[in-house]
Every structure is written in structure tokens, then in C-alpha cells.
Design a binder for these strands. Structure first.
Lengths: 152, 152
DNA sequence: AAACCTGGTCTTATTATGAGACTTCATTCC
DNA sequence: GGAATGAAGTCTCATAATAAGACCAGGTTT
């Protein structure tokens, strides 16, 4: 009766969710992207139980999403930073953010905005495009399964 | 000691995760996007416990991501289809897929591929771009908080 | 040196999850 | 037409995950 293990799934979405598919992982990653790198700062900001945070951080380090580094302020403490693999989650966070902005706020409600640092302008919408640069909707795409039963 | 409620969070990422942030929801949505619309088909394909699937589907319907519809094959059964809001999750699924493809497979391992239906060609990478059409990385962006303490 | 911060571990109560038996209609098989 | 099977759940129970908070050992500040 353990939680399902998706790490061997044939579907990349399932494998991703195996690593970052739980309640807290993406919130932790969002915070680290946002410059919150210390255990205690994360705990305070998220309101997560310490024991949970410990196991989540450990899992993310084990999976290669985060790594520990000496604290940037010169003290003997450590901090958690994203690996290259972890940086790759940026589009996932942005996609979640844009969906939330679109669907989960009342018209009169305000929320934080992701802006381009250089210009201060809000970023554009994350879009999937065809090679001819058309925007692709869900209906325009299909999954091509790996056929393990190729008959030559 | 209930699970945290993020539905009032100021951060859109947190609100999104409040709706679709658990283990199964995004897998269900992936399957529905993929044309698996019936309760029993979902249960079989995901290997999820029936009771879990019931509550997950109900939650997604309550949140407006899915809705029930009469079965498309003319039988008296029902099926679950994505609402407009649900379709909006397509970029989230694609982002997760691409991250998984990039980071969670051995070089010699194969996986399914998302292709453009018309041409059969794999879709391009999902990218965030500036207004000048440059690709934006994480380092190029900043969160602008809503300042509730504006001093005029 | 005392007080406080950091990064945890441990315990306990509550909640969520997984497996599978059971149920009620609808549909298909013979 | 009746039996068997499928669809879409509900119910129960054992186990795992989560939340709160007490506790603790070193590092840092005053």
C-alpha cells in the first residue's frame, strides 16, 4: 500500500510527476527560484512542517533537482540551490502560474506578476508552436507511442 | 492537521497547485487529453484505486476542470471531458513532458513523443519569450509582488 | 557567557491512500 | 428472455503520509 512508483513509466509526464508531483515539491522549487535558499526561510515562508521539509528537500537532492551549497553569506550554514536539471523546471512553474492567473482569480483580485528583469515588463504567454510558428492547441497534437511491437 | 489549503494564496502557482497539485490529478488530466474519458478506462489505465479516482474526479469537476457528459457512443453511461479551463492545462502537461524527456531517461531509452497531428512532426520546445522574442531563462525574470502597502 | 538562530530529529494524532469486496444498473451473449 | 458481463461507483479496513510541536546539538550574535 505504498504510493505508486512512476519512475519506470513509459510516459515522460508520469516520470516527471514521480519526482515533483507531490504537494510541496513545486512550491519549494518556486521558492528556491525566487531566491529563498535556506531551510529555515523555506520553512517559515511555506508554513510546512519541519519534518516534511527535511524529507522533501532530501528527495529533491537525491533526484538531482537541488543540491546543497555553503551559505552565500559566509556563515557555516548551508543552502539549497537548483541544479541545471532544477532550472529546467522554470517553464513548468511558469505554466502553472499562467494557468492560475487565468482561472483562479476573481476579476477584481490582484496577484503577483512575473516580469522581465531588464525591462520590467510582464512576460508573454508561454506557447507551444509548430515549426511554422503557429500556436498549437491541444487538438492539434497527438501522442506517438513507441511501438515495441514493430513488425519489420 | 488537514492538508494545507492554498486556494487563497496570493501566488498563482500555489493556487494552481491547490487544484491540480496532487499525485493523481495531472495524470488524470493527461489521460483525458489523450482521449480516455470513461471512469473504468481511467481506472484501468492508471492503476488507481477506484475510491481514489472517484474523489479525484469529483474534486476536478467541483473545481471546474472537468465536466461530465453523456457517453459519445450512445450508451447510457457518462464520460468526463475537459472544460475550457481544463484545456488550459495543456501547456502545463507539455512542460512536464519536456522536462521528463530531457532529464529522466537514459540515453538509450525510448519514450512517447508529442507530434503535430497534421504533419506528424514532433512539436518544438515550449519557451518563454520576451516581447522582443528573445528566449527568457529563469535568471531574466523577477516576481513583482502586489504591493498592498503603496504609499502614494 | 547568555541568548538566539540554524538545521534538523522524534513523537503523536489525524488524514490520505491502496486493495479489494460489494452494489446497482446497463449492455451483451446465447 | 435470462444469464453473464461491464460500468460506475460505494464501503471497509490496513497502512502510509502529513501536520504540530517538543526537543536537541552546534554556530552566531550581543
Amino acid at each position: 500500500m505504498k504510493r505508486k512508483n512512476l519512475s519506470k513509466a513509459e510516459c515522460p509526464v508520469a516520470r516527471s510527476l514521480d519526482v515533483i508531483g507531490d504537494w510541496w515539491s513545486l512550491l519549494i522549487i518556486r521558492d528556491v527560484l525566487d531566491g529563498i535558499n535556506r531551510f529555515s526561510a523555506l520553512q517559515k515562508n511555506l508554513g510546512i512542517a519541519r519534518s516534511m521539509l527535511t524529507t522533501r528537500l532530501q528527495d529533491l537532492v537525491d533526484h538531482g533537482v537541488l543540491e546543497t551549497a555553503p551559505a552565500s553569506d559566509g556563515t557555516a550554514y548551508q543552502e539549497y540551490v537548483l541544479t541545471k536539471m532544477g532550472h529546467g523546471l522554470f517553464p513548468v512553474i511558469v505554466a502553472l502560474r499562467q494557468w492560475g492567473e487565468d482561472n483562479l482569480y476573481q476579476p477584481d483580485e490582484q496577484h503577483s506578476v512575473l516580469v522581465e528583469t531588464q525591462t520590467g515588463e510582464p512576460v508573454t504567454r508561454l506557447e507551444l508552436r509548430s515549426r511554422e510558428n503557429r500556436v498549437l492547441e491541444w487538438r492539434d497534437t497527438t501522442i506517438r507511442k513507441v511501438s515495441s511491437d514493430l513488425k519489420p
